[in-house]
Amino acid sequence: MEESQLELDEKQWGPMVADKVFSLYKSLPKKGKPQGREVTVLSAFLLSSPSQDTEVIALGTGTKCIGRSKLTHSGNIVNDSHAEIIARRALLRFFYAEIQCLNDNNGFQNSIFESELDGSGGIKYKIRAGWKLHLYISQLPCGDASLCLVPSSIGEHEGCSELIGLVQRKPGRGDTTLSVSCSDKIARWNVVGVQGALLSYFLRPVYLHSVTVGRSPYVSEDVCLVKQLKRSLFERVTPLSNELIKPFEVNKPIFSAAPVPPKEFQHSETAQATLTCGYSVCWNKSGLHEVVLGTTGRKQGTSSKGAVYPSTESFLCKKRLLETFISLRHECKIRCSSNEVSYRELKG
Rank of each mutant, 00 (worst) to 15 (best):
G107Q: 10
S146D: 13
S138R: 02
F108G: 00
L149E: 12
F113G: 01
S138T: 01
R128V: 04
L135T: 03
G107F: 02
K126D: 05
S111P: 04
I137G: 03
W131G: 02
Q139K: 13
S120H: 14
S115C: 02
E116T: 09
Y136P: 03
G121D: 08
S153R: 15
H157G: 07
L133F: 00
F113I: 05
S111G: 09
L140T: 09
S152V: 09
S111D: 06
G130H: 09
S153Q: 15
F113E: 00
V150M: 14
P151D: 15
A129D: 15
L149S: 13
S153L: 15
L117I: 07
K132R: 12
I112D: 00
G155E: 13
K124M: 08
E114D: 11
L149G: 13
G143L: 02
F113H: 04
F113N: 00
I112E: 02
I123P: 00
I127F: 00
G121P: 04
I123S: 09
R128M: 01
C148I: 11
G130Q: 04
D144W: 03
I127D: 00
L140E: 01
Y136G: 00
S115N: 13
W131Y: 13
G143Y: 02
K126N: 03
S111A: 12
G107E: 12
I127V: 15
L133C: 05
G119D: 15
P151W: 06
L149C: 07
I112P: 00
P141C: 06
I127L: 08
I112W: 05
S138A: 10
I127H: 00
E114F: 03
S111R: 01
S111N: 06
H134V: 02
C142G: 10
L140W: 02
Y125S: 03
E114T: 11
A145L: 01
K132G: 01
I123Y: 03
I137R: 06
R128I: 05
S146Q: 04
L147F: 05
G155N: 12
L117W: 11
L149M: 13
I123H: 03
K124Y: 04
S152A: 14
A129F: 09
L133W: 02
S146F: 01
L117S: 13
S120D: 13
G130K: 09
Q139W: 07
G107L: 12
A145Y: 00
E114K: 10
I123K: 05
I154D: 06
G155T: 08
L117M: 09
S120P: 01
A145S: 10
S138N: 04
S115W: 11
K132I: 10
I137Q: 08
E156F: 14
F108H: 11
L135E: 02
N110R: 08
F108M: 09
G107M: 05
P151T: 14
E114L: 03
Y136Q: 08
S153A: 11
C148V: 14
L140V: 09
I137K: 05
F108S: 08
H134W: 01
D118N: 12
D144N: 11
K132A: 07
I112V: 10
K132E: 04
L140C: 07
H157V: 08
V150E: 14
C148L: 15
G155L: 09
S120K: 15
